[in-house]
């Protein structure tokens, strides 16, 4: 990680494939499976995580020289709980319907593995700007994952995808499979996507090694 210390772009990009929170690291599974019954739910959950993650990463990084090693986890939790409460109150005030749907999973962001993982593995030993980029990358990748899973489950489970009041397609094209909105549907979608991404990554890295060998 030392040689990349000043390479901000890498810290942002690595969250999407190499350290993808959902598909490569398999952290944050609880909200991934629980709230991804629709695209919009996934989006707002992701936005909440981006905010909390950026806030906590920046502050953990800022305070990394003052946090005693022995009690760093409790300190992280306090630093994470602050933005979580902010998100919770803001959501309650301005998006009450979404807050009702996401419910317990908003306060549970405090103990979300992604946030603690990024704090412990990255922000605690890297500079503030890098930590911020790392948080934005991981958070956006997480949001994207939740939206993709949510879109697939919503489409197969209800036959439609809703963006606010717009619904596409107007009438379901097929008989929706109710199972996709239940936890088994979440696990199946997650597993299939994880497998496909792994196949894609394996193909690309194989091509790279053969190129570097021949070249």
């Amino acid at each position: 990680m030392n040689e990349n210390k000043t390479f901000l772009g890498y810290d942002f990009v690595k969250g999407f494939i190499k350290e993808n929170p959902t598909f490569a690291l398999a952290v944050g599974m609880c909200p991934t499976l629980a709230v991804t019954t629709s695209l919009v739910n996934g989006f707002w959950m992701g936005v909440a995580v981006i905010f909390v993650l950026t806030f906590s990463n920046v502050f953990v990084s800022l305070l990394r020289k003052f946090i005693p090693d022995e009690i760093r986890i409790p300190v992280f939790i306090i630093l994470i709980a602050t933005p979580v409460v902010i998100v919770e109150l803001v959501m309650k005030a301005y998006l009450p319907a979404m807050y009702d749907i996401l419910g317990i999973f908003v306060p549970l962001i405090v103990v979300n593995c992604i946030i603690i993982h990024r704090a412990e593995a990255f922000a605690y030993r890297n500079r503030v700007l890098n930590s911020a980029m790392d948080a934005l990358g991981s958070g956006m990748a997480f949001t994207l994952n939740l939206m993709v899973i949510g879109a697939i489950r919503e489409f197969l489970g209800t036959g439609q995808i809703a963006f606010g009041s717009a619904v596409f397609p107007k009438a379901p094209l097929f008989e929706p499979a109710a199972v996709m909105l239940t936890p088994p549907g979440g696990f199946i979608t997650l597993g299939v996507l994880m497998a496909l991404l792994n196949i894609a990554v394996a193909r690309v890295s194989k091509r790279k090694t053969t190129q570097s060998q021949s070249g």
């Binding site: 499979a177 109710a178 199972v179 996709m180 239940t182 088994p184």
Partner: peptide, 8 residues
Amino acid sequence: AFLLAAWP
């Protein structure tokens, strides 16, 4: 079981 959960 999948069909039963999908189209009960």
